[in-house]
């Protein structure tokens, strides 16, 4: 009995939590469309979230590309299918690994950053100070960050895809002296737009989730300095989780609309 009551309570808080986040997300969406638009802030966040994440994303892409090729090389060579390596590489990165890993990296780096920065602004009364200056702090701080996440993730994903391809090529070149031209030709042979455009654009959803979740934790924290760390951690955990869950759903949706994109 106690157990069910406790669970009922927990379920209630869980539902409440979902409701709060959902209305936060709805607020992001509605206020994003109302003027005044914070272009300058958005541009700054594009730099902060996008350009500053590029080294991390590019380096990870390169490393993953090399590693993937080393793995698939030994496997595919035993099947005499070494010629498939570029295609395996490009398809796996463009369809799934690129978008997902880029999103998870951004969730880690940017999610924590946004959570901590906003929580700190809140704790040091800077958000109140913005409010006092008759500036809508939500539009000033939250919307630009979410919009920047949405805009930047497809770009970062493209970078990841291509650096992974480059890493794959370097590894393959070292192993079998495959020429760059042949590698590209094989990588994109039989490659459809639906293998690239929908998976890349789906990261806008990831961006929205990462931005919204981390802004939620940062913006609504009310616990002073110790809340900063918690906001950062929670942002990363929940946004990574949501990215993965959303990926499952999006893959299914993309497959519905673009049957050709399935492997």
């Amino acid at each position: 009995m106690i157990c069910t009551i406790a669970d009922g309570g927990r379920l209630k808080t869980f539902l409440e939590f979902i409701g709060v986040i959902a209305s936060f997300a709805a607020r992001v969406i509605t206020s994003a469309w109302r003027s005044p638009y914070e272009f300058e802030q958005t541009w700054m966040q594009v730099g902060e979230i996008g350009a500053r994440s590029l080294p991390l994303v590019a380096a990870s892409g390169l490393a993953l590309g090399v590693v993937m090729t080393l793995h698939t090389h030994s496997t595919l060579v035993t099947f005499g299918a070494a010629a498939m390596i570029p295609k395996v590489q490009s398809l796996s990165f463009f369809i799934e690994i690129g978008p997902l890993v880029a999103a998870l990296l951004v969730a880690g780096r940017v999610g924590a950053g946004i959570g901590a920065v906003l929580a700190n602004l809140r704790a040091s009364e800077q958000i109140d100070a913005i409010e006092v200056l008759s500036v809508d702090s939500f539009k000033f701080l939250v919307v630009p960050r979410v919009v920047a996440c949405v805009l930047v993730l497809p770009l970062l994903t493209t970078f990841m895809d291509l650096t992974a391809l480059l890493g794959g090529f370097l590894a393959e070149h070292a192993l079998s002296h495959l020429s760059a031209q042949l590698f590209i030709e094989r990588a994109f042979n039989g490659f459809a737009w639906s293998n690239f455009v929908p998976p890349t654009l789906k990261t806008t959803v990831f961006g929205f989730l990462i931005g919204t979740v981390s802004c939620y934790y940062g913006y609504t924290t009310d616990e002073g300095a110790e809340g900063v760390g918690r906001a950062a951690t929670n942002s990363v955990v929940l946004s990574s989780l949501l990215v993965i869950v959303a990926d499952v759903v999006l893959v299914k949706i993309i497959f519905l609309f673009f049957p050709g994109s399935a492997l």
């Binding site: 594009v46 590029l54 493209t158 590209i184």
Partner: peptide, 16 residues
Amino acid sequence: FVLAGIALFALVIFLV
């Protein structure tokens, strides 16, 4: 960053 990202996106579309 933004220009390079868009250019690469376009490049992939072109390659495909």
